[in-house]
Design a protein around this nucleic acid. Structure first.
Length: 211
DNA sequence: AGTGCGATTGACT
DNA sequence: GTCAATCGCACTA
């Protein structure tokens, strides 16, 4: 499909109409569950890259593990945008994390996207990641942002509009959704706020968390 | 201005 | 399984 076709009314980049804000659940935990099976799509210079969300984590209001816990700062202000906006930050000096803001304007909370099943633009992802293996292309929060070339420049973007990065409708019904503790956090570590598509090969985390 | 620390990854035993 | 790289940011002074 050419560029002109992609921009024609009624067509959608990569065939993924964006999720409307109205259909996003207002509550953070509900949104984390809702996003399993939905699509993340990215328009790059080389074409559309997309994947199916198979793993998320909720960082809820008042959560000691959440970046909004100590109030708004220059880094985390996007977490306080109305639900459906991107909050992107750099972790460990090397990995960008992609989150979806999840509450009313002024309330800081979000959903971390932790893993994607690659759908479109797989050769582009392989180039972006410097590896071939499909299973590892977007398995992990830092890996998926590398595969999609997502960085802080996209922080604050509205993910409910088709643009350079957006959330798309699911292409089929997701399977059974599992729930576990979150990965890699010290505070509030026992809450079951991680959600995943049971049986997916594209999950991060230990196998014991994916059963 | 200095300090400590991650919502991780990749390399390695 | 272990472990260190890496750097922006929040926090202290």
């Amino acid at each position: 499909m050419g560029r002109a076709d992609a921009l024609k009314p009624g067509r959608h980049k990569g065939g993924h109409p964006p999720l409307s804000r109205a259909e996003l659940p207002v509550d953070t935990v509900s949104l984390a569950r809702f996003l399993i099976g939905k699509i993340v799509a990215r328009e790059t210079a080389e074409g559309v890259v997309s994947g199916r969300i198979v793993e998320t984590e909720a960082y809820v209001v008042g959560d000691a593990a959440g970046h909004a816990y100590r109030g708004m700062t220059p880094r985390n202000r996007s977490l306080f945008l109305e639900r459906g906006h991107a909050y992107i930050y750099l972790a460990y000096g090397s990995s960008y994390m992609l989150n979806v803001s999840s509450e009313m304007p002024g309330i800081g909370a979000g959903v971390l996207i932790r893993a994607l099943e690659p759908l479109e633009g797989i050769p582009i992802m392989q180039r972006n990641r410097g590896i071939e293996r499909l299973r590892d292309l977007a398995r992990g929060p830092g890996r998926l942002t590398a595969a999609l070339r997502v960085d802080r420049r996209l922080d604050g973007l509205d993910l409910c509009r088709e643009g350079s990065l957006w959330l798309g409708r699911r292409d089929h019904e997701p399977g059974e959704i599992g729930q576990s503790i979150r990965i890699g956090i010290a505070r509030d570590a026992n809450r079951l706020l991680r959600f995943y598509l049971r049986g997916s090969r594209f999950l991060s985390g230990l196998r014991s968390l994916n059963e």
